[in-house]
Write a protein that binds this DNA or RNA. Structure first.
Lengths: 264, 264
DNA sequence: GCGCACTACGTACGTCGTACGTAACTAGGA
DNA sequence: TCCTAGTTACGTACGACGTACGTAGTGCGC
């Protein structure tokens, strides 16, 4: 396509291949994959136009033939990992199990791609793979009462829960990779500060709760508990009993980030 | 303090005033306030060392006498708005009402300072004002059964809910401020794309739920519903009946971002 | 087979965070 | 009392960043 003027454009509306001119050297998927590789390896801040171009083996400015702005590159990345979900052809009929599986897939995907929570937002929530994800999630609730709006609200809440939890789980690890000194030094300094603050006696309850959590925190357990509680809270509103099983999910295999949330 | 070597340091451990040398021209609060003003006005990306310095009326590099790294400036900002919470001396004794009020304050604060969700993370979760917030939130649950760990889990979940919801509420508005073209153009293009995608018939349920939500979405209502559901889901686990009132909160006045989450 | 739309790439500009050198200032120890 | 060491203030400079723009080469549609 010609030189981009200052015109808004949705990346998904651009044709992948123009009718005229030389054969493009890369596909959109190539570029997204390169960016994802870089982000996985070096964090989101390592995703620069120059780096991605180098990873692909082309000149920096050539990227702008495929991606008008860096924002669009982010959009490609989110959509690409959104394709990692293993969406069954049909829901199992047990909505709790299906949503639990989706949530665990999403969490696993974000652990594989720790930069995803930073990009998650309704802004990127309608990419092709995100649309497929949302439609499937809604289809899991097909037998239930309630409006589609209410169902979408549930899906949005599950997505929000996943994003919030994983963002918390990853926060310090993600910070560590951009420190000018070794992470252990940072941890030592910060926990020394926290220890001194708690020792002041002004925060007895907080001190108690942190001492209780001594030892490795059971992040998986906390996540599953939170998710189960959330689904419980919808059980009455939406009616339906999910068939036999209660709250057991199918175990997270692979997945990626649809964002959800009503954006109209 | 002397030229900073590559040494980790928690900003809260630095003395505000050195024992020797000229009287500093600004306080840490001055600087944080200037940065917050800029972020409120022009978005988080407008917070650059040069801008903040200009706002204060000093040279760029002078800021580094107060703030060793830009990250620390962010930490100051989060703590400052964290001081906007109106924390009563004592909880009312109705934990649901108290937590509802806290959540609404947090939401209101984030709407006043739309950049806060982007900075929210356990990394900044132990600034002085965040500690006070967490301790107060835990004290609201004093009468209830359950370990402090479980209570902290509730507080973390409420914070996560607030952050996730407000981030969604603000996402498109925050994106709009950094577009190279008018937001209306962007909206037009994106909703044209979405309309075409939905008209394809491949996403019937999603299409139905978005049509249902035609007209102005009741964000306040959705938030309150989600919050109420979340608190409901803890009612059995933690026992206790909250006294007379059910789920009515006190209305949000002012508040700021403690982050919560166990970080030991 | 000619022309035009497209790809490719280098150069260049304005921005960012911040390392570093230098000058002015102030409190503690002599 | 004065000296000096530690601190504040500020300018310059460097290597990143996103990306506007010019130019050269390529291959489809007429």
């Amino acid at each position: 396509m010609a030189r981009r003027p200052a015109e808004p454009e949705v990346i998904w509306d651009r044709p992948q291949r123009a009718t005229r001119g030389p054969r493009p050297a890369y596909t959109r998927a190539d570029i997204a994959a390169a960016a994802v590789r870089i982000a996985d390896e070096g964090g989101l801040d390592a995703v620069t136009m120059r780096h991605v171009a180098a990873e692909l083996g082309c000149a920096t400015m050539s990227l702008y033939n495929y991606v008008p702005r860096k924002e669009d590159l982010y959009e490609l990345m989110v959509d690409l990992v959104g394709g990692e979900y293993a969406l069954p052809d049909k829901p199992s009929g047990h909505w709790r199990a299906d949503l639990t599986d989706l949530a665990r897939q999403a969490r696993a995907m974000m652990h594989r791609h720790p930069w995803v929570p930073r990009l998650m937002s309704p802004v990127y929530g309608f990419s092709p793979n995100a649309l497929a994800y949302l439609e499937y999630a809604l289809s899991c609730l097909d037998g239930l009462e309630g409006t589609y709006g209410a169902k979408l609200e549930l899906v949005a809440m599950v997505n929000g829960l996943v994003t919030a939890y994983v963002a918390n789980e990853l926060a310090t690890a993600e910070r560590d990779r951009s420190l000018p000194w070794p992470p252990e030094r940072e941890h030592a300094v910060r926990s020394a500060y926290l220890g001194r603050a708690l020792a002041s006696g002004r925060y007895p309850r907080l001190a108690a709760s942190l001492v209780e959590n001594e030892g490795p925190i059971d992040l998986d357990g906390a996540f599953d508990r939170a998710l189960e509680r959330l689904l419980n809270s919808f059980e009455k509103t939406l009616g339906g009993t999910d068939g036999p099983g209660g709250s057991e999910g199918t175990g997270g295999s692979d997945g990626s980030g649809g964002s959800g949330g009503a954006g109209a």
